[in-house]
Write a protein that binds this DNA or RNA. Structure first.
Lengths: 339, 339
DNA sequence: ATCTGTTATGATAGCGCTAACAGTCCCAAT
DNA sequence: ATTGGGACTGTTAGCGCTATCATAACAGAT
């Protein structure tokens, strides 16, 4: 009723196109994939028929027959902070033109969820997998190791990669930030971060941070965690909490830029003397925040580069080392005093 | 000769599990899918063998045989603004437990890219498609209409849906905001937005906005567009530009909250009298910004609800109408004067 | 005229799974 | 004893493609 004569409501197959154009299915297949020799006349005939019918090839059948799937699984913990979209941009950018297509799965920082996402993805037999982090359930680890495809674990390099790792050393990043803070003369340092037992990278940064503090004979004077809600707002609240509980604090180290920005706005509202009486630093280098009245000290996590490199490895660029380390740059901004 | 007992590097199939557990492939398949009657003893045997081998089913073959694919294609223009991740959250949330799995594709606001993403997705024969917007290339339109699966176009309802539409009326949203602004007594209104010829929703909002202005005998006193870069920063710059070019401006209407927030920060820096001498409004209701010193007037785009409803439709919740409209709530915040 | 070699097309046999049906076994009900 | 039916397991035949080999047609080289 909706459609004119020729089309049944059945979904089209190669056979339909082959009948419509008077050649074998094989030839149609060759035309549509641009593979093998087909005369110009035949090619034109087939393309026209295919277009006229509105044929969409069935990749499921194609993949099964050819044992080739042009998909790359990408497993990340979240889409709602600013960091992973940028990694995705790097991946997409690089995959563009290789014929490979990224497919995103989100684990919400839950190892079991990650395992099931990985399982689900592997069951589609992708050509490669890109996964955030080096920590996975044992089952996930085994599946990945057995999959027989390139695996790239991204963001972090502090640990043993299954196949390849591309990222930065978060422990080192934490140490480096601590060194800068201590060198700037701050002594009563507090940490404010997410309450996420499974954010291993934030944890490693804090470890590195405390390690360096320890070597300088310092310990954190306070710490505060949150979960959920608007990061900017939480940053304000946490900062208020820390400063009222531990008024002598002279530096606030945040586990990410969003809460750091919230804290910064709070400090400015309260007319605190930033960065002289109190300093702040975050992590990530989110460009998003560039318009703030005052620039938060942070460390770039090399997200774009990580995405690019991971995609390169998946798409077959030869690599000599299992681990590709990027070096985050510390940006002092306006919230660490320089003396 | 070909394979010793267990470990070649070949990828496992049902046959391997079937041999390892001494039952037919069919029985293994039944166990792994939890379908049909299998004795507890057999089930245990099979599960153990499967686990021991590290078997991951091949969904490609499964899908081809069963003509069922548990995938839902989701096509959105971008991941890097705050709006689509929230829609995704609504979708994932609702799909959870239905056995359906979202697969995301990004079109970058490019119609041709959108078409190719749609084509790519349809070739995997998903159970449904969710697509942002009502505007597509003719080819994409035909493919979707022919696909024989539920199609839900989201975000916008000002137009003709292929199958279902779930969203808000952006034209109406624009009108409503204009009414509020005019009612508050602002008269010299400027628009600041993205330079995106293909952001049809932003365009519709502006149309509705100008329409209402027109009815009140007003026209925009200035307009400014941008593309790329940090939205917050751009908001500042554009606002500075407008206010220096058209100093009599008494209201700034932004096409999104991020640039609006940038503008707001600029006004506060300049100690302008917000909302009395100058008012501001954005669009989207991004929770992200909750921590700002002053609350920007905005309109919630019902992102979460849209995602949920779209997923419900895909997963088979009966619907009576082709179009599900949500009503965005205008939040006055602190940047529109109430008199 | 015969033998290559090249280009264009078709026929056949699966890829790894599941739908649909066909048993088989066992026990309760006749 | 016979029957019927439920519980369980196996057999067969594809799903819609593509790899591979076979075939056909014909150019030029021998």
């Amino acid at each position: 009723m909706t459609k004119p004569a020729s089309d049944q409501n059945h979904t089209l197959t190669l056979r339909d196109v082959s009948e419509a154009s008077g050649v074998s299915e094989m030839t149609v297949s060759r035309v549509l994939r641009n593979r093998g020799d087909v005369s110009a006349a035949t090619r034109a005939k087939v393309l026209e028929a295919s277009r006229a019918l509105g044929y969409v090839p069935n990749k499921i059948a194609g993949a099964l027959a050819s044992q080739r799937v042009n998909l790359v699984g990408v497993v990340i913990p979240s889409l709602s902070n600013m960091v992973f979209p940028e990694v995705m941009t790097g991946i997409s950018e690089t995959l563009e033109g290789t014929g490979l297509q990224p497919v995103v799965g989100v684990s919400n920082y839950l190892p079991d969820k990650e395992e099931s996402v990985i399982y689900e993805m592997l069951s589609w037999r992708p050509s490669g997998m890109i996964i955030a982090g080096l920590e996975h359930t044992p089952a996930a680890h085994v599946m990945l190791a057995r999959a027989g495809i390139p695996i790239v674990e991204i963001m972090d390099i502090d640990g043993d990669p299954i196949d390849h790792a591309v990222g930065i050393s978060h422990r080192r990043a934490g140490r480096q930030m601590a060194e800068a803070i201590v060198a700037a003369g701050y002594r009563r340092i507090a940490f404010l971060g997410t309450q996420m037992p499974n954010d291993f990278r934030a944890k490693k940064r804090l470890e590195g941070f405390e390690e360096t503090l320890g070597r300088a004979g310092l310990t954190l004077v306070d710490r505060e965690f949150y979960s959920g809600g608007s990061a900017l707002l939480k940053g304000r609240e946490m900062t208020a909490a820390v400063l009222s509980r531990t008024p002598e604090t002279d530096f606030l180290y945040y586990s990410n830029d969003m809460i750091g920005a919230g804290g910064l706005l709070y400090c400015l509202d309260e007319s605190l003397d930033v960065p002289n009486k109190i300093g702040l630093a975050g992590f990530n280098g989110v460009e998003l925040l560039d318009g703030l009245p005052c620039k938060l000290a942070t460390m770039d996590a090399c997200r774009l580069e990580i995405g690019r490199r991971a995609a390169e490895i998946i798409s077959g660029t030869p690599v000599t080392t299992k681990v590709s380390e990027f070096t985050p740059k510390l940006q002092f901004g306006d919230t660490i005093r320089t003396r």
